[in-house]
Computed example of a mutant assay.
Amino acid sequence: MNNTKQATQAVSDTSELNELIIDSIQDIKGKNIVKIDLRSLPEAPADYFIICEGDSTTQVSAIAGNVYKRVKDEMGFIPHREGQEASTWVLVDYFDTIVHVFYPETRALYDLEDLWSDADFTEFQNL
């Protein structure tokens, strides 16, 4: 496969991945979903952050678990995960996209949106 096809496939895969992640969050009624496009920032650790929150540690854990399960089942990607034990901030790392599932107070404390405020933001409706 030539480099152009590989690049096109990678963008397509990332777009499909991001859509599936957002749908997986909405399945479990995750709130305040934001996708941050970090591609224009040279110091960024990934191309995208997807950030959301749950009303309880149980919901935070369920959201992260649903993202993991659906992406694994539907796309075959297995991420690195951290924070599942305490479930106040669960990180699900797909390399190009990093999902941050927060408990509201923890989200306010770390305020990732402010830290990366010079990136492009897309907000999604609470269902």
Rank of each mutant, 00 (worst) to 15 (best):
E53Q: 15
E53P: 01
G54M: 05
G54F: 06
G54V: 05
G54Q: 05
D55S: 11
S56T: 15
S56F: 03
S56E: 12
S56D: 10
T57Y: 06
T57N: 15
T57P: 11
T57A: 07
T57K: 14
T58Y: 08
T58L: 10
T58M: 11
Q59N: 05
S61A: 14
A62K: 02
A62C: 02
A62L: 02
A62H: 03
A62F: 01
A62Y: 02
A62D: 07
I63R: 10
I63K: 09
A64L: 03
G65Q: 13
G65F: 02
G65M: 04
G65K: 10
G65T: 09
N66K: 14
V67M: 09
V67S: 10
V67D: 10
V67P: 07
V67N: 10
V67F: 05
Y68S: 03
K69Q: 13
R70N: 15
R70Q: 15
R70I: 08
V71H: 10
V71Q: 09
K72G: 02
K72T: 07
K72Q: 14
K72N: 09
D73C: 02
D73P: 01
D73E: 15
D73V: 07
D73R: 07
E74R: 10
E74G: 00
G76T: 08
G76F: 09
G76Q: 08
G76P: 06
F77K: 15
F77A: 12
F77N: 08
F77H: 13
I78R: 13
P79G: 04
P79K: 02
P79I: 00
P79D: 00
P79M: 00
H80A: 05
R81F: 00
E82D: 12
G83A: 10
G83V: 11
G83Q: 06
Q84I: 09
Q84L: 06
Q84N: 07
Q84M: 13
E85K: 08
E85R: 08
E85L: 05
E85I: 03
E85C: 00
A86K: 12
A86P: 00
S87D: 11
S87Q: 09
T88K: 13
T88N: 14
W89R: 05
W89M: 07
V90A: 12
V90M: 15
V90T: 14
L91Q: 11
L91A: 09
L91W: 01
V92N: 05
V92Q: 07
V92W: 04
V92I: 13
D93N: 12
D93R: 01
D96E: 09
D96S: 13
T97H: 09
T97F: 04
V99G: 11
V99E: 13
V99M: 12
V99A: 13
H100E: 04
H100L: 04
H100D: 13
V101S: 05
V101W: 04
V101T: 08
F102H: 04
F102T: 03
Y103M: 08
Y103W: 11
P104D: 06
